[in-house]
Design a protein around this nucleic acid. Structure first.
Lengths: 225, 225
DNA sequence: TTTTTTATTATAGCTGATATAATAATATCA
DNA sequence: TGATATTATTATATCAGCTATAATAAAAAA
């Protein structure tokens, strides 16, 4: 028989809409035609259109607000992270693998930044370390926040959108799984002094030292205490 | 007022089902309850259940076969790749970034494999190189296939599911974007001799040499000719 | 005039029903 | 036994109508 492809109305419609979105016929922020209009245009029922929209919604491409309409969304890497974390979670005991990847990525990121950072990026890193220090001295509880921000700043400083997205994604999946397993195990080690050393190495454009320091930092972060 | 959470029936149901799937209440391969059963269980209409299922389907979590039912699917990283490639494509000129990431990942992968490969994994790599050689000598056209398979074998040999998934994903996005831009530019350089050198270095567990060779290989692959 | 309230309108959200097609299980017949 | 027809189950697709929500316009109050 070899009926190669099975027709599913909502799939065809979702494909068509996605194509028009990527073609910027509906740019980010704009509203898609109302469901009733779309159903008329494609000559299908509103239900089918809605199923197609659910599809687009799940890939983070649009956002529907009741009473207002369906809007094209700037895709958020974090949302993707949670939606694909299920994939990584299907295997078991992957947290270890994930940590290895984070270590690998963060090390490469730091190395790249040490070689290509701009003065502004360096300044931002210094600011972050300073803010973290002030927060700790003031007895604040934002250490974890500043730590995350530190790694995010580094990722951005690579000027590589894909790389920084990947790092963000890994961090997102990691925090998602940690939240799932309720293992927020108290106060993590802040690692302030290590951040300071890393920034200094980056300031000096010392690629090798930066690499080494980041590797150690991640190792310590993993086995915190 | 202050309804902190926006209730959307289909979202709640999709969440619930996803949770039960990841909790292995519905393991891979099993069938979900029929739409009518689910609609009864959640006290919603079948339409709403269908929207929830569309959601799960689009994240590659289930697969519905008309007349048979909805089945839990082993998630395919490639499918995710294509579905999130739109995200990466929203930015412009990301191919360069993507290549940098591939280089980075493949280099790390080769390095890891050189240090932890098993005899069986080494054998598989040798077999791949041999097959490629035979294909080329026979005037076959499968060079690109064997090249992809080579990198895939390496990724798997890390024994790190996350890392190999990431590499696969990058390769998937890359080939997707390449296909989009219709730049299949003829016969790529097979890189057979480089593969052979790499495998030899891996056989000798020469981590540094493997790393260096892979870096060179990727560079040549990028600027092929 | 400015602000607040109310009504209108358009939208998505959801329902229950119907009809059709594909599939799987069962019963029938050779 | 083995092939075929029947039946039941299931998803697919549709429709008309209702509700809930949100943005806007009009009216009322300050």
């Amino acid at each position: 028989m070899s009926s190669a492809k099975r027709f599913k109305a909502y799939e065809a419609i979702a494909d068509q809409l996605l194509q028009e979105i990527t073609a910027k016929i509906y740019p980010v922020g704009t509203r898609l035609p109302a469901e009733r209009e779309l159903s008329e245009r494609f000559s299908v029922s509103r239900t089918t259109v809605r199923e197609a929209i659910r599809y687009l919604e799940s890939i983070g491409c649009v956002e529907t607000r009741a009473g207002a309409g369906t809007f094209v969304k700037r895709q958020d890497i974090r949302q993707i992270a949670t939606s694909i974390s299920a994939t990584f979670l299907q295997g078991s005991a992957l947290n270890c693998d994930l940590l290895e990847v984070r270590m690998l990525l963060d090390t490469e990121i730091a190395t790249l930044v040490a070689s290509r950072r701009t003065a502004e990026q360096l300044q931002a890193l210094k600011q972050n370390v300073e803010d973290m220090q002030n927060d700790i001295e003031a007895g604040g509880s934002g250490a974890q926040y500043f730590d995350e921000a530190f790694h995010l700043l580094l990722a951005k400083a690579t000027n590589n959108a894909v790389l920084s997205s990947l790092a963000e994604m890994c961090a997102g999946i990691y925090s998602y799984t940690v939240n799932l397993s309720h293992e927020v195990s108290g106060m993590p080690h802040s690692g302030l002094s290590q951040h300071q050393e890393i920034v200094t190495a980056i300031e000096n454009r010392d690629v090798k030292k930066t690499r080494m320091l980041m590797k150690q930092h991640i190792l310590k972060t993993i086995y915190y205490g």
